[in-house]
Amino acid sequence: MSIIFILIPLGLVLLLAAVAAFFWAVRSGQFDDLETPAWRILLDDDRKPPP
């Protein structure tokens, strides 16, 4: 059972990474507008103009 002494701190490090990622996402404004990104997926923007 002593593996738990490694696994739980490891889990906490992952948790810290998740929280840090979330903080970054909030700071960069990704949660300011939750509506429009859902529409963007409907757009094709990879079509090349004909030569």
Binding site: L15, V19, D32
Partner: peptide, 13 residues
């Protein structure tokens, strides 16, 4: 909102 959201996620996780 930007101040409240991180608090919420820290509390939740």
């Amino acid at each position: 909102r930007r101040a409240a959201l991180p608090r919420l996620i820290v509390a939740g996780l």
